[in-house]
Design a protein around this nucleic acid. Structure first.
Lengths: 157, 157
DNA sequence: TTTCCATTCATACTTTAGGGTGATTTTATC
DNA sequence: GATAAAATCACCCTAAAGTATGAATGGAAA
């Protein structure tokens, strides 16, 4: 801002000096022609041209051209991240308990019933009970069917 | 920015006008002393002013505003085609036979060994043999592990 | 207080899966 | 023709999965 103010002042000073110079030149030419008393029309013509040029110069210097901005939107295809999204409505519809869902996921991970029991800190019998209930709710006969169906329904990832 | 430009132009115009006014006053005072003897100088002074204004007007008329185009990229979500792409190098590395791969896929679909046998027109023993070989090559202990691993490796969809 | 549901556990039994061993046939390559 | 691999099949045995029945406990809702 301060720098801009100094620059502007400098511009105005230059403007003033150039104008003073031109006036001096004009006066000097005026005196020369007045003394000689020749080609008065030429003198006037030159004055006209000189001051026209001065006007143009001033206008170009002072007037800042407007910049018109045109915004063009370009569609860019974006592939969304491939993430698993739990199908909550389907899960609610099936009515699986949280324990049943846990067992299902561990089945899909390839664990045996005994291993699942160890993972969940329960007995093998408990796991079998949950599995049985799970198959009932999913209307399947075996774990491979349960896993296949659950993935199709987006209940497990 | 635009407002600032207008304000600056206005300032310069005012500056110019005030200077012109001063010049006019100067000329007028000068004329008061010279009017009797120098009618010509008054005429020339007016010519100078008029042509300066003409120059300014011309410059402003000729100046054309610049047009700048800005391209803005807009993200558009693209639904990826949910297609399975067989991981052929991995399949080659594991060395699964075509029959073994068939059995694997039907396992993943939830079929029992007996059902797979019926689907492929072979005996239950044959299916068990293929399954056994399959587990060996995949280094797994049970079908759920085989399925899980095969999906991870993109051998089956 | 009663009822319902989830969770846990047990037992007995049946079915299926999985491992081991061996054999025969078919297919492809040299 | 010889060889190796894939495919097919059988039999025996064990392990694991799956079914049926029953019981106990705790928490939430009516």
């Amino acid at each position: 801002m301060k720098w801009q103010a100094i620059t502007r002042n400098k511009q105005n000073i230059l403007y003033g000096l150039s104008l003073a110079l031109l006036l001096f030149l004009l006066k000097w030419l005026e005196l020369r022609f007045l003394i000689i008393h020749h080609a008065m029309e030429i003198y006037i013509g030159m004055v006209a041209l000189v001051f026209t040029a001065l006007g143009i110069w001033l206008a170009l210097k002072l007037a800042r051209p407007k910049v018109e901005t045109v915004i063009v939107e370009k569609p860019v295809p974006v592939t969304p991240a491939a993430t698993f999204s739990l199908n909550t409505p389907e899960l609610d519809r099936l009515g699986l308990s949280s324990r049943e869902l846990e067992v299902l996921q561990l089945m899909a991970d390839g664990l045996s019933n005994q291993e699942i029991a160890g993972r969940l800190f329960v007995s093998l019998n408990t796991v079998k009970t949950h599995a049985s209930r799970l198959f009932e709710k999913l209307d399947v006969k075996r774990r491979t069917q349960a896993i296949d169906k659950a993935k199709r329904l987006s209940i497990i990832p």
